[in-house]
Design a protein around this nucleic acid. Structure first.
Length: 308
DNA sequence: AATCGTACCAACCGCCTAAGC
DNA sequence: TGCTTAGGCGGTTGGTACGAT
């Protein structure tokens, strides 16, 4: 048995909102607030609408300080950087752009921005990253920097080094298999026990100031302690979705790694990674090995392919 | 002028999560 | 502790506008 519908579908109006409905909803919320109950709101406000529909209309259109119209270059850059970092977490991305809604940003990305990126990539007509080093073992990573970035590329200019993260996002340092719930400006709190594939375990409830400092250094300069490009990823550790601090051993590349064909794949409909990581990172800019029989670690730097 | 194709975006759908009981 | 349910979210759809033929 499925869940009960949130409203009587037969007796609610659907489709575009009329100015009268907008006015009713706006007046009611400005006068009485939502009361923390969207389901009951339409009836109180005299609307024949589903509560969810009212919520959406208010959040995406009627609430104060909503910004409509063209996105600025700065907004484009923020969206691209965050999308590259955290994927299609539109609500998180929207939180970084005052006045923009997640729906707005999602539509903008799907209809314009990704085409713009592809156009830029094609216009530049050169790979953003030229050197994919190959390594067949976990620890056989290259000592030389992975990236030979094309200088002054328009495409590249859309992605900044990661110097900040959405606030209050759980982070995992995959290298040491620590979980913590930090702000970058606070000591990292290790508040979840975990173990990892290499057998190491995390520490519960403790503060690792040293780790904090090291990671903050990584975030601030964009390179890890082996002087490799610092990378971020989402993963699922012990059932908890976390942001992973890449360290050169754990296979992700920034979108700067993409060549034209890879960018095309990014914005196309390719899929198929079998990685546990990948399951939680739909629509993100990450690379994994084609060969599902190899572990993600082993596949690192090895015949990388970009999935969308 | 009519038809067709494409782009855009508001709105809907259904899943997931967490709060409340 | 398990169940129910509202809220939140991301993916998708459908209507409309607009340009090309």
């Amino acid at each position: 048995m499925g869940r009960a519908p949130c409203c009587d579908k037969a007796n609610v109006k659907k489709g575009p909102w009329s100015p009268e409905e907008d006015s009713k909803l706006k007046d009611f919320i400005e006068k009485s607030g939502t009361g923390g109950n969207w389901i009951a709101l339409p009836q109180k406000a005299g609307l024949k609408r589903c509560g969810k529909s009212c919520r959406l209309r208010w959040l995406n259109y009627l609430r104060p300080n909503i910004k409509h119209g063209e996105f600025s270059e700065e907004e484009d850059r923020i969206i691209c950087t965050l999308f590259a970092t955290i994927g299609s977490r539109w609500s998180i991305i929207a939180a970084q752009l005052p006045g923009r809604t997640d729906n707005d940003i999602k539509n903008y990305w799907n209809t314009k921005l990704k085409k713009k990126l592809l156009a830029m990539s094609n216009y530049n007509n050169n790979p953003i990253l030229l050197n994919h080093k190959k390594s067949s073992t976990l620890h056989d990573h290259p000592n030389t920097p992975l990236l030979q970035q094309t200088p002054h590329s328009q495409f590249q200019s859309y992605f900044n080094p990661i110097t900040s993260l959405p606030p209050n996002y759980p982070i995992t340092n995959s290298y040491n298999s620590y979980n913590f719930t930090p702000s970058l400006l606070q000591p990292f709190m290790f508040d979840q026990a975990s173990s990892s594939s290499d057998g190491s375990c995390s520490h519960g409830k403790e503060i690792k100031q040293e780790e904090n400092t090291r990671l903050q250094n990584c975030f601030s300069n964009g390179y890890n302690e082996e002087n490799q490009k610092f990378m971020l990823d989402f993963g699922n550790y012990n059932g908890v979705e976390t942001l992973v601090s890449g360290n050169g051993y754990f296979g992700n590349f920034s979108p700067l790694d993409c060549g034209v064909e890879e960018v095309k794949k990014l914005i196309g409909n390719n899929s198929g990674s079998t990685s546990d990581h990948r399951d939680n990172v739909n629509n993100s800019f990450f690379f994994y090995n084609d060969d599902e029989n190899k572990t993600q670690e082993k596949g690192l730097y090895y015949n990388t392919t970009c999935y969308y």
